[in-house]
Amino acid sequence: MQMTQITNSKELLSTALQSRIIPNQEFLLQGSILDSAVDHLIHRLRGLCDTVDASPEQFHDLEVCLSLRQPTQTAPLMLRVRRALDRDSPFQLRYIGQPELDRSRPTLVRSSIDVGCTSTILDFLTELGCRLDFEYVSRGYIFRKGRMKITVSKIKAVPGKQQEIGSETVSQSYLVELSVLAPNGQDSIGDEMRIFAEQLKPLVQLEKIDYKRLGGLP
């Protein structure tokens, strides 16, 4: 009985994937802007994005990246757990796949799976054998325009337990990310994002960033 139920749920998942209702692809463009100019960008985004009347939504998140080394595979499995520091909301467990090497696409495309979790997820993953890779605090503003999510955030190092969380900044600039989560086969969103990125052009240059190339840097 138990087994049949499991196969049923697996079948349900596969049919859901086939019918393309699960958003499992992330389209991403990234850029950065100096601290001194970030106000202009916020101003511009407020004009361009939805909910013009409201003040920009702030966020303050802590992301923990864990890796699980498997004996059969050389590359470790990376998992990210993210939680909001400024409010009580569920944790978010996230798997991000390798970016697709397709030059013709206007954005970076990578597979992404998001799951809401309770706070015990960190203990659970540690029990599974995951080890802490790195962690950081991200604080900034979030906007939306249709399906697009735009975050303007400051990356900060996580200080020691005694100090107050999120006081040490990593750089003198803000990270700007434009992303859309969509099911398979919705490639038209890439062009939509490119057009939006064009509108932010003089302020911030949003591009596809190849992590592998960055990884080679010292």
Partner: peptide
């Protein structure tokens, strides 16, 4: 006026209730 996801890695669109439904 869709609610914004918190933490921000969450998907855009589902209501706060829906976000809590899984956990």
């Amino acid at each position: 006026h869709h609610p914004f996801p918190h933490p921000t890695s969450g998907p855009l669109g589902p209501s706060k209730k829906r976000m809590l439904a899984g956990p």
